[in-house]
């Protein structure tokens, strides 16, 4: 397949796992990513997703039908995990674009984000920083 045009090869690589899925759901519980950001370099780091302390039955029922923010969170988790395995500029830009959209109304001039992984080691849960972006100007990111 090395002589195939690159976009076609890319599409084939993306399509094949949907036609022949591996179905190895939750095979192991590995390090789990968290994305944090800060608006302007002197601000404290904040998680991009803040969990509610609890969800009532009505909220849970509603989220069965409509849960765009949570599904975006799951998407960001998957691309953060993917970045650790196969770094792609696409995924860095994807996180940046979503942060830009989130921060745009706040008036911040720059932002930065980082990816941490939370993992169990020797029985204890710890975390380490895997990736830290450079400081980016909000207006220049598409």
């Amino acid at each position: 397949m090395s002589h195939w045009p690159k976009p076609l090869l890319n599409l084939t690589k993306l399509l094949l796992p949907t036609l022949f899925p591996s179905w190895r759901f939750f095979e192991e519980i590995g390090p789990s990513p968290r994305i944090e950001y800060r608006a302007n370099s002197d601000a404290p780091w904040q998680p991009i997703t803040v969990l509610p302390e609890r969800l009532g039955p009505v909220a849970m029922f509603r989220r069965l039908f409509f849960s765009p923010a949570w599904n975006e969170h799951l998407f960001l988790v998957s691309i953060a995990t993917r970045l650790a395995v196969e770094p792609m500029l696409h995924d860095v830009n994807e996180i940046a674009a979503r942060l830009t959209r989130m921060l745009d109304p706040t008036g911040a001039e720059t932002y930065q984000f980082r990816i941490l992984f939370v993992a169990r080691e020797d029985g204890d849960i710890g975390q380490f920083v895997f990736y830290e972006s450079t400081e980016r100007a909000l207006k220049t990111v598409a």
Binding site: P52, R54, M60, V77
Partner: peptide, 16 residues
Amino acid sequence: ALRDVFAFSAYPVAGN
């Protein structure tokens, strides 16, 4: 493994 899903994975939808 299931304990860790709830302990530190990014999946549980609420803190409690």
